[in-house]
Design a protein around this nucleic acid. Structure first.
Lengths: 122, 122
DNA sequence: CTAACATATGAACATGTATTCATATGTTGT
DNA sequence: ACAACATATGAATACATGTTCATATGTTAG
């Protein structure tokens, strides 16, 4: 990790291009923003979660049905659903012993379908 | 990992909802598609790479400038750039000892800006 | 109340990944 | 040819993450 002085008017580096660095820094997002953006994509960055989210795109499903559809164990699915629930990407409601999950974020629906389109057209 | 029988017309399970599972399975994406989609999002799922891609959104930069802008070591940046290069998310050209990197995928530009929008509006 | 069931969760394990350090590769100027 | 430089890369380390197993929680039917 390098720490470089880089004020508005005085930029003293060796190899780098001081002005460009200064401008680019101002246009760059903050650490915390980058972290938050990465957090969302990280959740979309696992095949199991992609499959879960994709099937929830079509309809609300209960846990055991999700597990059956994507052919994974109930526990694995439940753990992943917890992550998605915490990030508010899925909504869930209890109905007796069943827990019904559905997509809870139109942004994510859109990101997901863009991701799927992306790999289909290339 | 559970493996369940699930043909077109005969669905025999215990707790699950057979018809829904059959329909949902047909609408679900394949393992390899889910894998590929996850691969893309996984690349977007790291704060360092988010920052790199975001600064490359604005302009082409050389490695040492990227490192200076995002305040990371040259080696770390270079390693990440290799991943992005292999996935063809960034283009690069050599100019003497310098290597200039730029965004090479409009889909990714769009995904990235959607991701950034998403965390900004909530 | 009890048994059967659906879901959630903690612990353990294996695997993947990001950064750092040291060094290699390849270029430029002298 | 040599020194300075920009970038790339292999190895090592530390850390994060996904799945499984066992079990806990909470609900329904009898």
């Amino acid at each position: 990790m390098q720490t470089k002085e880089c004020t508005e008017d005085i930029c003293e580096q060796l190899c780098e291009h001081p002005q460009i660095i200064c401008i680019a820094k101002k246009e760059s997002i903050s650490d915390s923003e980058a972290q938050q953006v990465a957090e969302i994509f990280k959740l979309l960055g696992d095949p199991t979660r992609v499959k879960i989210l994709q099937v929830l795109t079509k309809r609300e499903l209960c846990v055991c049905d999700i597990a059956a559809v994507i052919e994974m164990g109930q526990s694995a699915v439940s753990h992943q659903l917890r992550l998605l629930r915490n990030a508010r990407l899925v909504r869930y409601r209890r109905e007796g012993k069943m827990a019904w999950y559905s997509l809870d974020d139109e942004h994510v629906r859109s990101l997901l379908s863009q991701g799927i389109d992306h790999i289909k057209h290339r």
